[in-house]
Design a protein around this nucleic acid. Structure first.
Lengths: 197, 197, 197, 197
DNA sequence: ACATAAGCGAGACGGTACGTCTCGTCTTCTG
DNA sequence: CAGAAGACGAGACGTACCGTCTCGCTTATGT
C-alpha cells in the first residue's frame, strides 16, 4: 500500500537475492552423487539433504533434474588450461594426452565417465559434454597437428582428422573399457600417430 | 541372446511354456518406446500396456528395466561372423572395421550406444557388453595384427595393443560423439595404423 | 497372449484383491493420529508410516486426505438400533437422546464432530451425513412425537417440527460448543419440550 | 480488536506508521477466501496476492495463519448491538433470535457457517468463535431469562441453561442442516421455550 | 484322467522420487 | 522504519514407476 506507481520501472530486482553459498552446496552435492552413483543416483531429495538445502531452493534454480545435473557437471568438468605450442609436436601431444589422462585417472574421472555415459541418453547432457569437455581440447590438438604439418614434422598428405582424434579416442576407449591407464600410454599413442624420427 | 532369466533346464519342463508372441510383443513395444521417447521414456508399465501383457510376464524374462532395454536393443547387435584371415592385414582390418561401422550406423546403432552407456553403471552389463560386443572382435583383430607382424607386414617393435585398439577406439569415438561415420572411415583408420607400403 | 476371447465376460474382478488388513491398518492409524493430534495432525505420510503401508495403498482407497478422515470417522457413526415405541413419549425421547449423547460422548465423538464440520464444505459429505447420522433418527423422533400427540400426550396444536428438532439441536449445540454432556441432559431437554405432567 | 502483534508502545513511535489501508485489504482478502474455500483455502500467500501486500506485512500483524483468520472473521462476524430489556421476555427473545437469524441468512451467513465448521478442527478458531459470536449474545439471553423469571414471567423451577441455549441451538441446527430459515422461525422457537400465556 | 506345474493378464502391495505448494523466517531494496 | 518482493529450510501434497506378490485362469506335461 505504499506507492502504487512503480515509477522507475527498471529497478534491477526486488526481494532477497539468491544465496551463492546455496549454488556451491548444490553443485558439490550433485557432483558427488553423480560420480558415486551415476545420473539415476542423483536425486533432488538426496542433493537437497546433502547440501543442507530445501528442495524449493533447487527447483528455483533449475526446472528439473536433468538441467541441474547438466549445470553441475559443467562446473566440475571445466577444461584445464591449454598448454602453449612448444614447436615439438610429439612433446605437445604427449603433454595434452597426459593431461587428459590425468583428468580421467583423477578425482574427476568417475564424473567424466558418468558424464560420457549419460549424455547418450540425454541430448542436453550431450551438448554440454561437447562444449565443455571436448570442444576446446579438440580444437587445440587440431591446431598443434596442423602447424606441425606446416613445419614439416608430418608428411604432407597426413589425415589431420584421424590424427587429431586418435589420441582422445584411445584414451577414452581405455577409460570406458577399464583398460589400464598407465603412465606410458600417452607416449605409446603418440608413437602410433606421429612415428618417431 | 537367450533369456537372462533362465528356463533352468533344457529337458521338457512341466507347466505351460512361455509364449513366443509375448517375447515379440514385449520386444516391439520396448523398441517403439525407446525410439519415441528415449531410454527414460521406456517404462515397464508402458511396455506392458503397449504389448498387452502383464508386468510379471516381463519380469519373468528380464530382471529389471535396464536389462530389458539392453536385450531388446541387443537383438540385432550380435557379432557378425568373423572373417577369415586372408593374409592381407590392411584388407582384413578394413573389412573388420567396416562391419563394426555398419552396426553402429544401422538400426541397431542407437541400441548399441545405449548399451555402451548403460554398462558404465551396471557391472553385469559391462561384462555382457565386453563378451558379446567387444570380446570376439578384439581377439580376432589382435590375432590379425600378430600374425601380420610375424609375416613381416608390420615392423618388429610394433605396439600390438595400441594397433589393435586404435580401430575400434576411433569408430566408437566417432559414434559416441556423433561424428560422421563415412564410408571411407575404415580405410582412413587403417592408413593410420598400418601405413600403406 | 492367452485366449484373446474373454468368453465368460462376467468374471467379477481381475487382479489381486485389496487386502482387508490394509483397510484396518489405515483405519486404525488414521483414528489414532486424529485422536492424538486432531485433524490437521492427520498426515497421509504419517498414516502410511504408522500403518506400515505405502502411500499409494491409501490413495487407491481414498482420493484425498479429507475423505480418508471422514471414512475412518464414519465407521463408528452408524446409527444405533431404533428403540421401539413404548407408548410413553417422555421415556422414548429420553432414551433416544441418551443414545445420541452416548455417541457424541464416546470414542466416536471427535469423529462425529469432524464429520459434522467437514460436510459444510463438501455437499456429498453433507448428503452422507444426513443419510447416515441424522436421517433415521429424525424420522423416528418425529414418529414418536406424532403418535404421542394422537394419544393426547401433547396438546393438539404442538409444533411437531420444533419439538422434533429441539432435542438433537440442543445435543449437537452442546457438543459443538464443548458444553458438558452430563447424564441428566436428555431428561432436562425432555422437560423442556414435553412438560412433565 | 487491537493488533495482536503490538505496536509496542502507545506513544507515537519513530519511523513509518502502519498503513490502515493494509489492514483493510488484508481483512477483505482473508474473508473472501475464507467464505469461498474455507479455512484451508486461506493461504498467506493467497491473501498477500489478493490484498496486493507483502507476506511480511501480514506476519507483522499476526503471528500465524490461524490468528489472521480469527481476526478477520471476527471483524466480519461482529455482533449486532444488544437490544435493551423491554420487560417482555417473549418479545425480547424473538428480537434476539430474529437478529441472529438475520446474520445467518445474510451476507455473513456463509462466513459464519464456515467459521462454525472450521473451529471444530482449529482450537484457536473455536476460542475466537465463542468469544466473538456466542459469548455476548449468550450472556444477554441468559440475563433476559433470569430477570423474566424474577418478574414471574417464567415458573420458579425453570431450567435457565436449557431455555437460554434452546434458541441459538435451534437456529444453528437449522442453518447447519440447511433447513429453511423462515420468518416465523423465531416466534415458533419462543413458543416452545416460553409457552404463550 | 487327472494332478502338478508353469505361464498369463490384471492389478494391489511397500517403496522412492518426482515436482508443486505453503508455512513461517530472513534478507534486500525503495520510499 | 514500513512495505513489496521474494529467497530460504522444512516438509506434506498427490502422481508415477519400481520390482514383488497374489488372484483366477489357461495350457502343457507326466503319471
Amino acid at each position: 500500500m505504499t506507492n502504487p506507481v512503480p515509477d522507475t520501472t527498471d529497478r534491477p530486482r526486488a526481494g532477497r537475492r539468491r544465496d551463492p553459498l546455496c549454488d556451491e552446496a548444490i553443485f558439490a552435492a550433485t557432483l558427488a552423487l553423480f560420480a558415486e552413483q551415476g545420473y539415476s543416483g542423483v536425486t533432488i531429495e538426496g542433493v537437497a539433504a546433502r547440501a543442507g538445502v530445501g528442495k524449493a531452493t533447487i527447483y528455483r534454480r533449475y526446472p528439473d533434474k536433468a538441467q541441474l545435473v547438466v549445470a553441475a557437471v559443467h562446473v566440475g568438468a571445466c577444461v584445464t588450461d591449454l598448454l602453449p605450442d612448444t614447436g615439438d609436436l610429439r612433446a605437445n601431444l604427449t603433454t595434452m594426452l597426459g593431461s587428459l589422462m590425468g583428468l580421467l585417472r583423477g578425482n574427476q574421472g568417475p564424473v567424466l565417465l558418468a558424464f560420457a555415459a549419460e549424455r547418450i541418453r540425454y541430448p542436453s547432457l550431450d551438448e554440454e559434454f561437447k562444449r565443455s569437455v571436448i570442444g576446446a581440447k579438440r580444437a587445440h590438438i587440431r591446431h598443434l597437428v596442423t602447424s606441425a604439418m606446416e613445419r614439416g614434422e608430418l608428411p604432407a598428405g597426413t589425415d589431420v582428422d584421424i590424427v587429431t582424434e586418435a589420441g582422445p579416442a584411445l584414451l577414452w576407449y581405455h577409460a570406458l573399457n577399464r583398460l589400464p591407464l598407465t603412465d606410458d600410454l600417452p607416449r605409446r599413442i603418440v608413437d602410433l600417430v606421429v612415428p618417431p624420427t
